[in-house]
């Protein structure tokens, strides 16, 4: 199917590209375990000092804020996105294209524009510098992720499953509760994970809407990177690598159970 030379050329290109992609990640992980006081790479020895420093320097509050905001964002995005996905998948309505474009715009509009426009709007009504304000801001970007992930599954979802449930004695509500929701749950979960991740990593909206009173993780890292290149940042980065891997694992598991569903 794929000739030898072809394969060699492709593998060579891919190896170079993947080295470029992954090497920096490896560097951060390695430096975070360094025993040196500086950012030497390769490090002279290994220790957990910088992870301990995370605890000493009060990073925990940042993790907590980010966890709060991320979880609420995932929750709100799900509550708003799931019904919207049902509307898009099952009904035809005027302005449908415009609604899709709106969701697309919510992802594509640059974060700086969201940040300053929300700040301008929230400041006079007292939502600036509140967790709720930031959650609302992040939910704007989170909803499309929920919709996109669920939409793909909903389009392939066999509505005969609901019909089968009702034919065999389930009321319409029972059919949704016992069949539709469990079958769609993995896709909803994937969307929620995406919404959480984008919230946890978003910088500018967080900076403008909460940055002056609390320090979400992204804001704290940003300030750390700008002021000094202390390896504490590397340790924080290490925890984020773990977060990304954990999210990936959740998504992989969810997708595996989703693949079970008849397409």
């Amino acid at each position: 199917m794929i000739s030898r030379t072809e394969a060699r050329v492709l593998w060579f290109c891919a190896t170079v590209a993947l080295f470029y992609l992954l090497f920096p990640v490896v560097v951060v992980m390695t430096v975070s375990f360094s025993s040196s006081k500086f950012l030497d790479f390769p490090p002279p020895g290994y220790s957990l000092q910088w992870y301990r420093a995370l605890l000493d320097e009060g990073w925990l509050s940042s993790y907590w804020i980010t966890f709060q905001v991320g979880t609420l964002t995932a929750l709100f995005s799900t509550l708003v996105g799931v019904p919207a996905a049902f509307a898009l998948a099952r009904y035809d309505f005027p302005f449908r294209r415009s609604f899709e474009a709106l969701l697309l715009a919510a992802i594509i509009v640059p974060p700086i524009i969201k940040a300053i426009s929300l700040y301008l709007f929230f400041a006079p009504i007292g939502l600036a510098n509140t967790v709720l304000g930031l959650v609302l801001g992040h939910t704007v970007t989170g909803v499309p992720y929920v919709v996109i992930n669920l939409l793909a599954t909903l389009k392939g979802y066999d509505r005969d499953l609901e019909r089968a449930a009702q034919a065999h004695g389930a009321t319409p509500l029972q059919a949704i509760r016992t069949v539709t929701l469990p079958v769609l749950a993995p896709s909803v979960l994937v969307g929620a994970v995406f919404a959480f991740l984008q919230s946890a990593q978003e910088l500018l909206v967080a900076l403008f809407l909460l940055g002056t009173v609390e320090k979400p993780l992204a804001v704290r890292m940003w300030e750390g990177v700008r002021i000094s290149l202390s390896p504490t940042i590397a340790a924080a980065s290490g925890t984020l690598v773990v977060l990304a891997l954990a999210a990936l694992a959740v998504v992989a598991l969810a997708l595996r159970s989703r693949r079970r569903a008849p397409a």
Binding site: D160, R163, A164, A167, H168, P172, T178, V183, P262
Partner: peptide
């Protein structure tokens, strides 16, 4: 409603609950 019509039903897609 359907659920009170005392039916059994088979579908082209089988419609087995995957979960």
């Amino acid at each position: 409603p359907t659920h009170r019509r005392r039916l059994g039903m088979m579908f082209q897609s089988y419609a087995l609950f995957p979960h």
